[in-house]
Amino acid sequence: MSFAFGPESIRVRDLRKVYRVHEREAGLLASVRSLVRRRWREIPAVDGITFSVAPGEVVGFLGPNGAGKTTTLKMLSGLLYPSSGELEVLGFVPWRREREFLRQIALVMGQRNQLAWDIPAIDSFELNRVIYRISRADFRRMLDELAELLELWPLLHKPIRNLSLGERMKCEIAAALLHQPKVLFLDEPTIGLDVTAQRRIRSFVAEYNRRYGATVLLTSHYMADVEALCRRVIVIHHGRLLYDGDLAGLVRSFSPHKLIEVEMEQGSPDLAGYGEVVSADEGRVTLRVPKHATAEVTARLLDEVPVTDLTVEDPPIEEVIEHVFSQEAR
């Protein structure tokens, strides 16, 4: 594959998407009133973001609900057209949805099914084979490979509705990859799955990316997904780009805190004087302290409190992200 439009597989410049929604108020009277007159508001879901992704990269999209992640993904896959800005995937303008473009991408949404509900996955796969013009040999090879990696063999001949959520998701992903897309969009692929299924899908995506050099864009609520898969993350909030870089850098540059966990023989004395008390159980207290004060507070604790054990940690990445978002809101 050669990219006529440069080395990137995805290029986004100053992308914006504005929705018009009507405002709703609470209460019986207000809802009657809104029958007659309704108020409209313009909401910028994506508000001028710029980035590019090289072929073979796996990029995690982070942001709270409503940050604009899904909107961006839909614009990239061609379901939405942008209000303004430039957008290019594999050299195509996505929203034109040219056949040639559609044959090279795949979108998997964790909350939506594409496979026919009542029939076995293998039959839907066969339909996809015809629709995507996959040769029988390629199909066979790809199916073998996917079934091996995802452990699909026992599932292929059961109706989708009889599968568990995790099994269904594995089939969904397989269906989306039969045509070997060069760009893969995953919107919350592990949502609602148990930990084992999440891990299985994670390692599969990594493997697919390694074998085929596909570009992967992923949104997820589970930081574990992002930590396992993405060396690079893009954080968006209120439609704006907050951070674009590697995961470790995100924690370093955004977390001004450390967590100190203190264990004691007995009791849980009030340690509010040392830092913000995050949790306090019998014999164990967790404190949040500013990064620069860590050494000083630790010393004081060891000195003044009957400590049996003490550990200092970076806050979990979720907390860092949450912190970033709440900072931004202020």
Partner: peptide
């Protein structure tokens, strides 16, 4: 009934 009314009135077209 009251809940029904409130739910439904949210959709003007429905009425």
């Amino acid at each position: 009934f009251r809940i029904g009314v409130m739910n439904e009135l949210a959709y003007r077209a429905n009425f």
